[in-house]
Design a binder for these strands. Structure first.
Length: 467
DNA sequence: ACTCCACTGGAAATGAAGGCAG
DNA sequence: CTGCCTTCATTTCCAGTGGAGT
């Protein structure tokens, strides 16, 4: 790649050449007037930014490279229009390969066509990432369905058995609909609520109840499910035999995009930008960056979006390669801190403690032993006068983050008087994570300002274990 | 080879928040 | 109001483990 010099020269040139709104803060850095600022036309490289919004469903002609999958899904759902219940589906493949895009677009159209024929179909989509138990899943499905149907929803969240929540859900279907399609995104993360290891995961029960609704609740084949997952094999493995016999889905595989396909995908969203604001290399470069990862189209689009935003921030009239490079690092950081951002303060504190452990450790112990992280967590909680959770609780949190792949873990024995420890290894840059956490909460910022103290706390914990 | 200790991991218990029926 | 139900987050309890010391 070329060095920075010429690139920034070009940038400056362009800015002076076109810069219609070169702001009047030149003289002494003061802004002329706030009203003037508002009156001034907004400078942006975007024409229709919503095209780059990740959850926004786009027209079918913007879908690229998924013809096979698109046709399978259509073929699968088509019988619904002849009042023949469609079979269940499982769409699997890595994230950002178009699973929810395809199912979303196809079901949208299906509902429209069905409406014209006077046939009532509802689609209820549930992302299971933040849902912990079967009970919560049923509750949310019922709530979403009620909203979809525009009927009042008066089901209590607690104090009512899961069975009754199912009944409520089935009642809604029975009363209002000919067919309901449940789209269960990332279903494999719905494992919680297990009492013992012998019991099957929550999603197994959920699938059982949804697929057997016809028998259980006397519905007439009015329910079909579409499961979206990264890993179909492990999901199917978690099913108990009962569910396995009632849930026999048609599998549709979504594989990675290569750089070439990503480029085409991005070109189809090009009109999110004004004409001619994208430098020629921007799209190929963005596609290449995204292809280096997992061929994730969502990430590619995020990168392009972010490059545009950076250009706007700099009030640059065009999007340059340099903006792409900046976007690359920005999005990388963004992705690594995302699951932490809306964690509770308790969890944040624990992750923060773990990050401090990783960063301050000066022994040759690898990773972060859970017990040490917990001790540091307690110290932080004490110094900020916060509630503390027990070791067994923080262990559960650690394990959650292992399944989220923020950490990997490994246990090591330290022998007499030291016990065995589970070590957690950051899979994302702990420095970024610390920065994110420091900015997100005042209490953690306090701790950060007191870093000498906590550095010593971390070190003495490690030294004890290392000696 | 055996001992012993602190930690692990999983089950059971507890408690909070909420709801229902009589 | 009372008694009994639900879910869910959390704590308490305890057998199991791994490897340094003896």
């Amino acid at each position: 790649m070329s060095d920075d010099g010429p690139v920034s020269d070009i940038e400056n040139e362009n800015r002076e050449e076109q810069g219609p709104a070169s702001r009047d803060d030149s003289e002494d850095g003061s802004i002329t007037s706030i009203e003037d600022e508002f009156e001034m036309e907004r400078v942006t490289v975007f024409k229709d930014e919503t095209l780059l919004h990740p959850t926004n469903l786009v027209d079918e002609d913007r879908i690229y490279g998924r013809d096979k999958q698109l046709n399978s899904v259509i073929r699968q759902l088509k019988p619904a229009l002849d009042e023949v219940p469609p079979k269940d589906m499982i769409l699997h493949g890595p994230s950002g390969t178009g699973k929810s895009l395809i199912i979303g677009t196809v079901t949208n159209k299906l509902v429209k066509v069905a409406e014209r024929r006077g046939y009532n179909i509802a689609v209820v989509k549930l992302n299971c990432v933040d849902i912990k138990t079967e009970d919560a899943a049923v509750y949310n499905l019922a709530k979403k369905l009620a909203r979809e149907l525009d009927v009042p929803f008066d089901l209590a969240r607690k104090g009512i058995s899961t069975n009754r929540k199912y009944e409520h859900l089935y009642d809604l279907i029975r009363e209002h609909l000919d067919l309901t399609i449940f789209v269960l995104d990332e279903l494999d993360s719905l494992v919680g609520g297990r009492r013992t290891n012998n019991e099957s995961p929550a999603y197994s029960n959920l699938l059982y109840n949804l697929t057997r609704a016809t028998d259980i609740a006397d519905l007439e084949h009015q329910v079909t499910t579409a499961v979206l997952t990264n890993d179909a094999d492990s999901l199917v493995q978690g099913l108990d035999s009962r569910t396995e016999s009632s849930f026999s889905p048609r599998e549709i595989l979504f594989d990675d995009y290569d750089a070439n396909e990503l480029r085409k995908i991005l070109h189809r969203r090009e009109d999110a930008f004004r004409d001619d604001v994208l430098e020629d290399d921007v799209i190929p470069l963005t596609a290449a960056y995204a292809a280096q990862g997992e061929g994730d189209a969502r990430k590619a689009i995020d990168l392009l979006h972010s490059a545009g935003e950076i250009a706007d921030d700099e009030e640059s009239p065009i999007v340059t390669e340099e903006h792409c490079r900046e976007a690359q690092t920005k999005v990388e950081v963004e992705y690594s801190v995302r699951e932490i951002r809306n964690a509770s303060i308790q969890k944040k504190t624990l992750i923060f403690a773990a990050a401090l452990c990783d960063l301050y450790n000066d022994t040759d112990i690898d990773g972060v032993p859970g017990q040490i992280a917990h001790n540091v967590y307690e110290k932080i909680a004490e110094s900020e006068d916060m509630d503390k959770r027990s070791r067994s609780r923080t262990r559960v949190w650690f394990n959650e983050y292992v399944t989220n792949s923020l950490f990997t873990s490994e246990t090591k024995g330290y022998g007499r008087g030291k016990g065995k420890h589970t070590h957690y290894y950051f899979q994302k840059d702990p420095e970024n994570i610390r920065t994110e956490l420091v900015n997100s909460d005042d209490r953690l910022e306090d701790v950060h300002n007191d870093r000498e103290l906590f550095r010593e706390i971390v070190r003495s914990e490690y030294r004890w274990l290392a000696s």
